[in-house]
Design a binder for these strands. Structure first.
Lengths: 243, 243
DNA sequence: GCCTCCCGCTGCTCTGGATCAGTTCCGAAT
DNA sequence: ATTCGGAACTGATCCAGAGCAGCGGGAGGC
């Protein structure tokens, strides 16, 4: 896949129109190609020298484990996302990352990123923007768990995920392909797997959303966004915010 | 207050030894001094042209409101913290910020920050580090809400806050001054105020922690960290990580 | 062809925390 | 000195979601 059509380039381009120099610097990130099988722990909590990856294909999830063995999934990573960027900056790994599907990724050298900051300010801004966007996703997730009911929370979370998939051309408002199990969803939403199952069933029975056979289908987008209190204004913007 | 003893400088210095040029650039941030009274909404969700502040004195909180009027506090800001940095990068404000106490802050121009990235790479790295640290705080908060019981969650959250206060010289492992009400805590922890009250009472009765009269006291630090599953390794490091 | 494992699914019971409906306390304003 | 408003605190009841126990079905391995 050419750098020009990589999901990351696509994502960054919605924010800023990248120049040739930026693209060249970005291309240099993709030196070491790596593949991982489902279940592989790509990054371990506590790891020294944290690795950074750019996801080209497949899904991963970042999570933390509690002493009692419970797991909280903090975020899912989809094509175009960075893995371990925060850990690299903090020089300490505060979470683990696991491959959910077979994965294709580029392992990036932290030094390449810092170099990019020095010599390709436009690209640096774009990366910062992407990092901020990730943080905004986590914040929305926090609100989901803190203040929404199981149903709102599930609906809202899947809509958010759909919006992210759409941003890299892997989905639209009818739905998206989704390799997650109900267990993943439970660990992400702070619910039990049993309850996630019931919630998904009622959402389906109400004709709002179907989560089945590797696909999430938004059966009634407008009623769904209303139920979830989901802000659809992201659908309005077209073209880079910054030229 | 001289720039050298500002909470932000102090915080950044735990990470990287800043040079004269860095400090000069940092000093330029503090051009417009602003004061706010408790309850003032310094940043509004949806605001265009978001403002950026560096908190010098006082406490603020960033939060999101839900359609049904519920509020989720995402984070508290203490001296040395940035307000609205993420919004500035995203060029859209996805949360509000309210002053909790009387506040002294510097309003920073986004352009000054971007300039700093171009000409003071060490400082830029330090700011990036601070932003990553903020994100790590939000992630811990997410785990609190998603997977910990009310008691663990309350204890863990206050310990985390204590660690942050310690980092800017405003607390130690015996406790810290804290202007929050039980309502603030409830909105942050995703609990009802009633339940927060009960939890604080049992923590106090068990001789673990006292939340009273504007101060949080860690009555039994080691039992408390054990209950909360709180990682105390932050206490080990001394001196900048990066020289 | 059968076995096994994982995932989806379901009924029942139990409980952590919400909700409702107050009272008490304290500090600031008049 | 009294009022007033916000915060802390408490008891009683309710319910969303957890926990437990178990079933069915499909995909992969031998």
């Amino acid at each position: 896949m050419s750098i020009l059509e990589s999901p990351l380039t696509r994502k960054l381009s919605t924010f800023v129109a990248l120049g040739d120099g930026d693209l060249e610097t970005l291309a240099r990130f993709h030196r070491r190609r790596r593949s991982f099988l489902p279940g592989h722990e790509m990054i371990h909590e506590g790891q020294k020298e944290p690795s950074v990856f750019i996801l080209a294909k497949g899904w991963a999830c970042s999570y933390k484990l509690l002493p009692d063995g419970e797991r909280q999934i903090v975020d899912f990573q989809i094509p175009g996302d960075f893995l371990g960027l925060r850990s690299a900056l903090l020089r300490t790994t505060d979470h683990s990352v696991e491959a959910i599907t077979p994965i294709e990724a580029s392992e990036v050298l932290a030094s390449d990123i810092f170099e990019a900051f020095a010599r390709a300010p436009r690209l640096a801004t774009a990366i910062l923007w992407a990092a901020s966007r990730d943080e905004a996703v986590v914040v929305e997730h926090l609100v989901d768990i803190g203040r929404r009911t199981a149903e709102e929370r599930t609906a809202h979370f899947l809509l958010e995920l759909g919006a992210r998939m759409e941003l890299v051309g892997l989905g639209d408002r009818t739905g998206f392909d989704c390799p997650l199990t109900q267990y993943h969803l439970a660990d992400a939403l702070g619910l039990s797997a049993v309850h996630v199952n019931r919630v998904l069933r009622t959402l389906r029975d109400d004709g709002l959303l179907t989560f089945q056979k590797g696909r999430v289908t938004f059966d009634d987008f407008s009623r769904l966004t209303a139920l979830a209190g989901f802000d659809t204004s992201y659908l309005d913007q077209d073209g880079p915010l910054l030229r």
